[in-house]
Design a protein around this nucleic acid. Sequence first.
DNA 1: AATGAATGAGTTTTCATTCAT
DNA 2: TATGAATGAAAACTCATTCAT
Lengths: 201, 201, 201, 201
Amino acid sequence: MPHAPDPQRPRTKPAQVRLEELMDAAEALFLQRGVEATTISDIVQAADVAKGTFYTYFNSKAEILHALAQRYTTRFMDEVEQAVDAQPTDDCLARLRSWIEANIDVYVRTHEVHDVVYSQHHHLGRGNAERNAIQQQLLQLLEAGIAGGHWALPAPAVTASLIYSGVHGATDDLIAAPKDQRAAFKQALIADCLRLVGATY
Amino acid sequence: MPHAPDPQRPRTKPAQVRLEELMDAAEALFLQRGVEATTISDIVQAADVAKGTFYTYFNSKAEILHALAQRYTTRFMDEVEQAVDAQPTDDCLARLRSWIEANIDVYVRTHEVHDVVYSQHHHLGRGNAERNAIQQQLLQLLEAGIAGGHWALPAPAVTASLIYSGVHGATDDLIAAPKDQRAAFKQALIADCLRLVGATY
Amino acid sequence: MPHAPDPQRPRTKPAQVRLEELMDAAEALFLQRGVEATTISDIVQAADVAKGTFYTYFNSKAEILHALAQRYTTRFMDEVEQAVDAQPTDDCLARLRSWIEANIDVYVRTHEVHDVVYSQHHHLGRGNAERNAIQQQLLQLLEAGIAGGHWALPAPAVTASLIYSGVHGATDDLIAAPKDQRAAFKQALIADCLRLVGATY
Amino acid sequence: MPHAPDPQRPRTKPAQVRLEELMDAAEALFLQRGVEATTISDIVQAADVAKGTFYTYFNSKAEILHALAQRYTTRFMDEVEQAVDAQPTDDCLARLRSWIEANIDVYVRTHEVHDVVYSQHHHLGRGNAERNAIQQQLLQLLEAGIAGGHWALPAPAVTASLIYSGVHGATDDLIAAPKDQRAAFKQALIADCLRLVGATY
DNA sequence: AATGAATGAGTTTTCATTCAT
DNA sequence: TATGAATGAAAACTCATTCAT
């Protein structure tokens, strides 16, 4: 039978705060040493709570990982959306370019976290919510361009899929490239995408 | 509880056969229940050998997974290469088209295995051998077309990266699409890629 | 994940009511899923009180189980006593028969609860209070019959023990018997007991 | 990942021996400190094997307990059967008396083990195999006596149930009785049972 | 080359109990 | 009285790996 806990200060915090602290601690550890290698014990120690407290908020490591994935995607989309919305509503080309550029930039900056939080997805991308949501953003931009007569696309959904996957995959290569070649790589990537869309510029 | 040993002896087989049997058993189990959830015990049971025998052929689960990945990529590349080589050496466009089409087809047919054997790559694509090798095939096709004057590309390596990732990612969407729309999806995908290259056809 | 607290206040109830609600909730859960498998959390949730409230009324799970056992036995004995007292004070045979019959009937009706509340007694019967008290009831009936010259018994305490255990054990078999044979089983059981006592009837 | 085990002697033993050693160790500990209080760690330590070895033979504490219960019953029945078979085949009364006496004696000697191995049965006796098998022994003796004209019983199965439960329950009281009264208690118990059967002696 | 009983460190998970509010 | 977030000791169970046969 459990014994008396230590007579420390009141350790209660608002649930939202505790949740964030646990998630931050977990993300940092997953990043440092990998998901597999990180134990619940590591997480609670880093978050300075008791073992059981973890289970008040999450039922397993998989669950906190899922929460991190959702958080990652939400933040990712918000950033991209902001970049797009910084462009004039009617400048379809600029908006598309911003979407591509933001995808590259944010992904370059956050890819480690991305890898971690999506490492456990057995079906690497197929049908996951992140992908769908961001691809949807892109599809709307493509369709706006078509509606506005800026370009024509026989199958915009296919093109959106191609660009989304292509940009992210190519960005993986960009990240692996020598530092001094990255800017050129990025510009070439953007140019290829715009050429694909047939945007006149 | 341990069971009575059956007196089935001798159980020796050629090393190559045993190796294949172990790999086949492992691949099937990884496919069914996932890599994580599959234990060495499961594998040896399915392959009908003793625990220790596994370690005669592989040093760890990671090692057999790596062997499976290599086998997958070799088979994948062979198939694509065959499709490309079925086209005339000088018909760059037909060869490129064949490369794209074979990538889609083979990937559709084998994507489950692909997911499994590459599920453990924390850096989902960055720098892995499969990707590099297949992308290299494509890059050579693109460069052949440039050399032959069939198209011009400012940064062929970037375009190869974009097409490779784009095709595979879009194929994930193709797989998720309703059956009756797949043919159209595939044609649109090929057309987009060729347009990107600026191939006149 | 913790939920928002509902602003339902005040939740105070008379102590006796809370106590009963907790005991009823616990008994129902113990019955459904077993004592071991039922947690304090389950109980307080079913009783719609907070964790801490449980400890205002009981010091442990063992304590509430003990309270349930006492409640069970009190109710059991009261019912048997009522049945016996419905017979004329001087009709020893009728009183004995009523005791046996009531023991069977009440036990058939309540055996699930009996199993639950006495499941933790490592010494299944030896020396527990329930048994002693009910056996004492029987012993008094047997001795009254001896005193009244209705039957003779060389060792009434042994006979009381034999009848008590025999009736309860045999009733377990009665419960397991097909429904349509239960009435006959019960009559045969009563007849055997009366024959054992040597009651002329 | 697990590390190299210590380079101790070969610790392999015939499965049957290991099984018995584990069961003996478990039974001793269950007896000493109770089932609940005994951990798998305790058992393997007492049996001088590694944690994992336990799980080679049993899947849980419940499973070893079940094995112990079976072993107990087998041994119990064997002893009773031997005692009965020591009597002439045609002396029904002596055989019945031997059955009763052996039940009392063996139970007195082994009741602690009995309590332990059957402590977890939620339905204390109803339908469990031990009870059924031993009761069946008794029923056959009763029916042999009827067939041989030694006694008459309106419902032998009910009487068998009553005697079985009665003897075991009363023996619990016998055990609780002062030492110097046990012999008399036992004789009275046997006499009561024989009287119940109507055996002339 | 093949066997399979044995290993044991390591991880997850549970849940009775407390106490500041 | 009542609350419920936090506690943390304790236990079950896993499974990759070894090695004498």
